[in-house]
């Protein structure tokens, strides 16, 4: 007998499975790099850094190994997990709210908007006294949100929001912002390398402080959005149908769009514009597990984390000692896989 408990059974099986995959990906990712480290040492070092648990542990490894694991590779991997989770979740929300399989933080221009704000901060080296290390993320999600507002206003004709116009408006705004970013790049001389790198997406500019900024935010957002999955499911039946069943469509849509844009802004502020995660991961989850957002959202969070940690491992090791921008890897891996899945199971997504 199928029924409403169906989705929680699926989650009970697949959340642990994906968590194990994530754990394996993380462990493997830490061991790979210019200095080879075995898995056992990885876990001992991580264990010893966990409060209480690690207090009584005896150090059987070199200090340099600990530095590599704990201060260089770990923060980067955690950041990859958080950014992947944030982007995948933002993509899933956009696709659900806009009922558009093409919707993604990049298509709507939100990523570019965030990138523009962040690039300006980098260019002028501006740091607010009040905000401190939060300057970059705050400016990035401020400008991302502003971009969404511009896109939304452009798309809103006669007080009605047509979904096709929204995507078109996103493309227009994105093209405009891209030209401004190029201008900044041309003006930036010595900072060009950093800004360019960052525009293509990279997790390399990391230490623990970045994680401290975005971890609580991503966690709170995941919790918050789980209370809105029922509404997301109902929007899939059409806005009028959702409205007649009691969903305050305008309000729910606005809240979700703002939340998704904040997630994008935060992700962009720490890692630049990494494409394809928000498009690919929710689609993959949808193809594998069906179109119930109570399943899609939590599994997208885990899927995005796994995908980005994996992609970053490839980005930093494939051309050692050089490092590739992760955006190249995500597009290179993401696009063909998406094409394959699309061929394999042609069906109506929405």
């Amino acid at each position: 007998m199928k029924g409403p408990q169906n989705y929680s059974q699926k989650l009970m099986i697949w959340i642990p499975v994906l968590l194990i995959v994530l754990l394996l990906t993380v462990t493997i990712s830490i061991t790979i790099g210019s200095a080879d480290i075995d898995m056992m040492t990885v876990w001992l070092v991580i264990g010893s850094n966990i409060p209480f648990l690690g207090d009584g542990m005896e150090q059987t490894w070199k200090d340099s190994t600990e530095t590599i694991i704990w201060n260089i590779r770990m923060p980067r991997i955690i950041l990859g997990m958080l950014v992947g989770a944030a982007l995948a979740m933002a993509g899933a929300i956009y696709q659900g709210v806009l009922r558009n399989p093409l919707a993604d933080p990049f298509i709507l221009g939100v990523s570019s908007g965030s990138a523009l704000g962040a690039a300006l901060v980098l260019l002028f080296g501006f740091e607010s006294m009040v905000l401190g290390q939060f300057t970059l993320p705050v400016v990035a999600f401020g400008s991302g949100l502003l971009t969404l507002f511009v896109v939304y206003t452009l798309a809103r004709i006669n007080y009605r929001l047509q979904m096709e116009t929204l995507i078109l408006a996103g493309v227009v705004v994105q093209a405009f912002i891209a030209s401004m970013l190029s201008l900044i790049l041309a003006l930036s001389d010595e900072k060009m390398q950093t800004i360019m790198y960052w525009m293509m997406g990279s997790l390399s500019l990391t230490d623990w402080s970045y994680n401290r900024v975005i971890f609580p935010f991503v966690l709170l957002t995941i919790l918050f959005v789980t209370f809105l999955t029922r509404e997301l499911n109902m929007l899939a039946l059409g806005e009028e149908a959702a409205y007649h069943s009691g969903v305050s469509v305008q309000k729910v849509r606005l809240i979700l769009l703002v939340v998704a844009s904040l997630l994008t802004g935060v992700a962009v502020s720490v890692s630049g514009t990494i494409g394809f995660v928000g498009l690919i991961i929710p689609h993959m989850i949808r193809l594998l597990f069906g179109s119930d957002y109570r399943i899609i959202l939590p599994l997208s969070v885990l899927g995005g984390a796994i995908f980005l940690v994996g992609a970053d491992t490839i980005a930093r090791t494939i051309l050692e000692p050089r490092e590739l921008p992760i955006g190249i890897i995500t597009a290179f891996l993401g696009a063909p896989f998406f094409g394959y899945l699309l061929r394999k199971k042609k069906s109506n997504y929405f």
Partner: peptide
């Protein structure tokens, strides 16, 4: 609409 949502879940909405 022709969505891949089950009849039960739809009615439950």
């Amino acid at each position: 609409p022709s969505s891949p949502i089950s009849v039960f879940d739809t009615v439950l909405m």
